[in-house]
Amino acid sequence: MSCIKGSDCCKNFSSEEIPVNMHLLNELKRKSSSNSIITNKSDKSDDIWNSDSDIDDEKTLNNDIKALKIRHNNKGYLDGITKGKDSGLQKGFDDGYPIGAELGGIIGELIAETVWRYSMGQINSNQKKIILNELKIDKILNSKYFDINLHLSNPYEHPVIKKWLLFFKNLQYPL
């Protein structure tokens, strides 16, 4: 707070009074400087606070990154598993479709032959029933006829197909 020389706030002081005041000021300064330990402590204390702040900043940064990682990992996982399942389902379907089509085609041929032979009286109703029962989808697609990857190398080697193809081949009646 500065004041103007000769202004009201200073005019009551005599010239002698000022050195006294200066002395007091110097005394205060001396005391202050003699109390250097406190001053030093105070400086160190400031350093310590500064260093802790750095560590806290770093911890906060790491925690933020961890949280970010967890959040985005979780989102990525959920999206990935959903898309992966869709993709796997489609890839599997595309892989299995031709195998099923091959088998279905052969079974269809056996059905037509069974119906025809029956209508011609070449097989009886019981034989027809047995054949058609053995050709049912759940029996033909039984996992025991497929390898571990659900693959079937030659559909004509399928035991049920082979059995009934041979049966019709050996049937004594002509078409």
Binding site: K91, G100, G104, G108
Partner: peptide, 15 residues
Amino acid sequence: DGKLLGIQTGFQRFI
């Protein structure tokens, strides 16, 4: 699962 469904569907469509 997809492959099983594919085999079944191929069978049903082409019989």
